Computed example of a mutant assay.
Amino acid sequence: MKHVTYSSYSISAFGFHSPSIDIIMMRDPLPNIIALPYGKCPPMHIQATSWRQLLKLMAKLSATQIEPSVEASAVTKGELNLRTVVQFFKVHHASSDWRTVIYLTIDYPPPPEHRYANGDVNVLPYSYNLSSLPTLLRDGPASQVSKYYTIPATSRTPLPKLPITMPSMAMYLASALEDSRRALNDTSSGVRRLAKMVDQFYPNEEDTAAAGEEEVRRRGGRALIGRLMGRASKPQRGRNADVYDLVTPFVPDEWG
């Protein structure tokens, strides 16, 4: 799997190896198809300099799609869902800058004897335990230099179904952040952690992100999320118009 960087964005990379903390300018083209294996394989990751830069990058990659590998489709029946973990990490202890990386695997049901808290945002999905963990995930959900958050399946934001395009994946992440913001006053779960980390690590992006999320709610972006995640909904206006509304807050220079 190759790495990729676009000159209009800050450092971005992807692959099945452990994310690098070194700044490397990579210019290889991103493949149109990113095939995920099923079972024993390290998670794929996508890295950017910030949460907003990550969503901007993904929203721009309309030609790229994430889908099960041929082998994964052959050994499974029915729908395959994506399990996503968001991580923020420092390049070194003295740094005040936090990078954003997401990890992706195909959901894998745990065996009956395995104790797994499916909705716990501080516990990695079972599919992440099937191979060696990337180095940055080994320190747990909250260390001094790295913190991760497992996006839970909710009634508002179910697990994405494969295949999924990069812009649709960006909308899924935006929806997960919206769910987290709605839970800011809920101390009974850890769902609010994602919003608190995004606001803490990227304070200069807070106002822009909040305005973008309000635009999503106002213009019916939630209904589009439902369709992209496979939920039935009433007919809406043209899909292209909805996609435009949903990604505009993240790429105003390209879409606005």
Rank of each mutant, 00 (worst) to 15 (best):
Y103V: 13
T135H: 08
T135R: 09
Y149L: 09
R138W: 00
T105V: 15
T135F: 06
R115H: 14
H114K: 08
V123R: 11
D139C: 13
R156M: 05
D97Y: 11
T105I: 08
M166R: 01
H93V: 09
N122C: 11
A94T: 10
P163C: 06
I102K: 05
P134T: 03
P109T: 06
I164W: 03
P110T: 02
K161M: 09
P134A: 03
A142D: 15
K161Y: 01
T105L: 06
I106R: 03
G140K: 02
G140W: 01
H114P: 00
S155C: 07
S168Y: 11
L136H: 02
Y148C: 08
N122Q: 12
P112S: 04
Y116M: 13
Y128D: 11
L136M: 08
K161S: 10
D97W: 12
A117K: 13
V145N: 14
S155F: 08
I151N: 07
L136S: 07
Y108A: 00
P167Y: 03
A174P: 05
G140F: 06
R99D: 09
S143M: 14
I164R: 00
Y103D: 14
A153F: 00
L104Q: 08
V145P: 00
T100A: 14
S95Q: 13
M169S: 06
R156E: 08
Y149P: 10
T135N: 09
D107G: 12
S155W: 03
